[in-house]
Design a binder for these strands. Structure first.
Lengths: 101, 101
DNA sequence: CCGTATCCGAGAAGATACTG
DNA sequence: CAGTATCTTCTCGGATACGG
């Protein structure tokens, strides 16, 4: 049984939350527990629609965010953090605090 | 004087410690307070010499790491964290712990 | 309203060889 | 030992336009 040289779980963590807007999205979803697509856009104006879409897709795939779609016209979706996503609170807020000081 | 819409210090933090190997380098320097170049290479075997050099240069420029050069033959250098670098302990260890769970 | 598709340029990172 | 130089490749992200 050769241990797979997993020298550093940091890389895994970083892979999930780096990407230009992921950490910011998570941070916003911590403060605004459920958000529609456009709300997120307004909260993060510098993030293009395309990027927001892509990053959310990644976050969803990685189990950090869930998307709820209401089958109505016009379309309505809501994004929120999963438990796994919420568990990043310490990390993300740690970065937030450090960035301020 | 228009305030630059600095909505999220997270981005600043992330800018300093993302980059493929930076957080790992910091983590290693937390555990091994001073390291020579080759020691770091051995600690992070997947990071090429070129990349290690570049990332260290960034970290140095950003005031997270200091390099001490001994004018001897063969060359000897030692890298260590600045106070600012050490202050990332919580953040980096937070990521490490989260990555394990 | 909530996205996707396509195209394109810049920068990140790998491979390899060389230097003080 | 501790890097740098050069070249190529690849990924990310911006701009723009379109679709259910």
């Amino acid at each position: 049984m050769t241990e797979p040289t997993q020298q550093c779980p940091i890389e895994n963590t970083l892979k999930l939350i780096s990407g230009k807007w992921k950490s910011v999205i998570i941070y916003m979803l911590l403060k605004h527990p459920t958000c529609r697509f456009n709300e997120l856009q307004k909260l993060i104006p510098d993030c293009s629609r395309r990027m927001l879409s892509l990053q959310l897709k990644d976050l969803e795939r990685d189990g950090l965010v869930v998307k709820k779609v209401y089958p109505v016209v016009p379309p309505k979706t809501e994004y929120s953090l999963t438990e796994r996503g919420k568990s990043l609170k310490e990390v993300v807020e740690g970065m937030q605090k450090w960035g301020q000081a």
